[in-house]
Amino acid sequence: MDHSDKTSPSEAKPMGRRDFLTTLGWGALFASIASTGAGMIRFLFPNVLFEKPTRIRVGRPDDYSPGSVTYLESSRVFILRNDKGFRAMSAVCTHLGCTVNKDAGSNSYSCPCHGSKFDENGGVVRGPAPKSLSTCEVTLAPSGHMVVDLKSFVPPNHYFRV
């Protein structure tokens, strides 16, 4: 069997049957453990979520008077209207996800959890919030209703005009 070994010991010895099967066995064991583990981890990431829709209808443009700030509680978004148009400003604090409140008697916003403050355009006035409040994309549905996409963001100077 090992005839070549005896005649030429300097040549690389081919893997014996026992070593090959041992390696194969251990390899198969670890491969199955690794793939099961990977499957277990993947299993924990849900593919279907039963969460609120992120595209929401917020009424017709005429429902909002010029210069108004309207808070839509179920969607955690402020609808701002001024002479430049409409903005949908997210009320989700950029620090740790609490809901910011509009300050009484002024156009600034503050977060009840850790004291972040934002100006009338959502820019950070006082930390710990690292970023200004996001502005969500507003579009017009064929029915004439405005639609806010809570997952699609536009720059804060971007206004929606009818």
């Binding site: 990431f45 849900p46 969460e51």
Partner: peptide, 16 residues
Amino acid sequence: PSFKYVLIGGNEVGQG
């Protein structure tokens, strides 16, 4: 972000 997603089983704190 992945850790948060798998910990709360979604994007926001809910049934998951």
